[in-house]
Amino acid sequence: MSTPNGNGRVITMGQAIKEALAEELRRDPTVYVMGEDVAEAGTAFKVLKGLVDEFGPERVIDSPISEPGITGLGVGAAMTGMRPVVDIMFGDFSTLIMDQMVNQAAKIHYMSGGKLKVPMVLRTTMGATRRSAAQHSQSLHAWFSHVPGIKVVIPSTPYDAKGLLKSAIRDENPVVFFEDKMMYQLKGEVPEEEYIIPLGVADVKREGTDVTIVATSSMVQVSLAAADKLAEIGISAEIVDPRCTFPLDKDTLINSAKKTSRVIVVDEGYERYGVTAELASVIADGAFYYLDAPVKRMGAMDVPIPFSPVLEDLTVPTPDTVFEMAKALCGAN
């Protein structure tokens, strides 16, 4: 586990993200942040509040409500010496920027035979249960994970978010960084001293022996809660967080599967053709002879996210549903 032994400093995920941006803005004058209401408002989620005070409106830039425009501008700026961090308020708005990300950012390095590169970060959000309904609640990281040329980061703790965002900004490729908007207030230990976490290295969030739960983003927290309950009935769950869907640390996933022989993959994207399918396939391939049961998948229900709380809560995995799945997989009563 890479969680810091730390000095006891506890901050929120939102603060960790802001710290990462501030440190990189300070370190590298070519870094800038652009998005809707990122400056004085500090984003709709107030995550960047105060950032403009230190770096000014030339580097923390409020944009028009023009997602394709600011993404395209970021691609061009990245190609010509800047390191843009483009803020797309809701991941649902990915629909608006797909040409710039998929046909432009992802392909420019390859199409140019390696001559041009696009070192930009696109920060956006994911996650349901905020009562925001169908157009502000989706987790669409699978879409970007599908496209060669893009890296996708999906952190689950303040510590990971900070270290991974700093790596993403320093990366030479387009990186999409998904923040679960329900986790901005999540607290965790983050050291004062600078650190980075390389992209593509999974982290074992809890060690166990009976079942592996591969979980991403907020599903890590859900799975940790499920693991507590499983422990009460004598099932030892190992929680593995890939931290990036690409580059994907296949070895850590496969090795955990080999150790426990039972695997559940939990991710908040749609289950159909989703991240869980890819991870399950990787594990099934890599650990086939070690598995005692088929790899199980748990994702968002394949419906538009409903508004009504009683309906919305049914659409995403919870500690209870993960607990039940693990219990069944382990043949416990």
Partner: peptide, 21 residues
């Protein structure tokens, strides 16, 4: 900075290059 097979697809890229400059 490259030809582009998406009609109008390079408008943002050109403006981004101007932004860098």
């Amino acid at each position: 900075l490259g030809a582009n097979a998406i009609v109008g697809g390079s408008a943002g890229i050109a403006a981004g290059a101007a932004f860098s400059a």
